[in-house]
Simulated scan of single mutants.
Amino acid sequence: MDLTVYLLILALTGVLVGFTSGLLGVGGGFIMGPVQFFLLMALGVDPNIAIRVAFGTSLAVILPTTISGAWGHKRKGAVLIRPALIMGITGFIGGLLGALLATNMPVEVLRIISGMVIFVSALWMLRTHLPQKKDEKTHKDSSYLFWGFLVGLIAGLLGIGGGVIMVPILTLLLRFDIHKAIGTSTVVIIISSMGGIIIYILQGLSVQGLPPYSVGYVNLVQFMALALTSIPMAQLGVITSHRLPGKHLRYIFIVVLVYISLKMMGIFEWLNLPL
């Protein structure tokens, strides 16, 4: 693959990731992961290494991108600080464990798990009605601790920020307003992603066959190409998010989830569809 095309695809992916991160309160790893994985495969990188580099680099990009998005949502009054910090702390621990598991699992298993988790999240949001009455202040800290850990575990395992799981949990189970669920999710992602990043770097330091300019399972070329475009676009996503009704945000979220889940599970390849 030509280097210019390679970098252009990454930059455009960063634009989409940044906008989606600010718009939907997700890290964007479910977009970056598959794109990086398929690009690395096209460059001849071993699949088992490619998927770990894709996941590790995704988490690294997610950190500055979600910081940008969280700042924008905080200015809009859409971040609930206490729940975000509590979930973020246990999410960090879960992220450590999830990333440790991911660096020791076969690539085929990771792809299937990733696709299934995202697809189930989409169905969950589609089939469940958002509550009409919100009650964001009655939950015990223990519930935030549990959900934070679970989301962090999944995020570290799949190289995603966790927003694809966190936003449905906050809206459907904890009854957050969709805009506050999105804003709060960005803060949780900032903290939880750090655990996964640490493990992906440490576990990959002695691995042979990594693409050039890699620090462990984090590739600096891909990081820069993605981050430079995703960070500013996150602010545009935040602005758009607060101009859209909650119902519209919900359906956009679902469509994105379904597409990425099918892509990760290889359904389009199996059906010979160029998607």
Rank of each mutant, 00 (worst) to 15 (best):
L228G: 07
D2I: 05
L202E: 00
P47K: 12
T57E: 02
W270S: 09
L228M: 11
V120H: 00
G195C: 02
F38C: 06
V258I: 15
L273H: 08
A102F: 03
I51D: 01
K137V: 14
M116Q: 09
V45N: 11
I165A: 04
G98Y: 01
T186V: 12
L174D: 07
A181L: 00
H179Y: 02
E136C: 05
I9T: 15
W71L: 10
L63S: 09
L40D: 07
P274N: 06
G196W: 00
T65M: 05
I118S: 02
T229Y: 07
I199D: 00
A78D: 13
L16C: 13
V238L: 08
I93G: 02
V35W: 05
T13V: 09
Q208W: 06
T13A: 09
L100E: 09
G148W: 07
D135G: 07
G183C: 01
M87P: 01
L85S: 09
I89S: 11
A122L: 06
L257D: 01
P64N: 05
P232G: 03
L236E: 04
G69S: 14
H179E: 03
Y144S: 08
L110I: 14
L226N: 01
W124D: 10
E269L: 03
S214A: 00
I198L: 01
G22K: 12
V107H: 10
M41I: 15
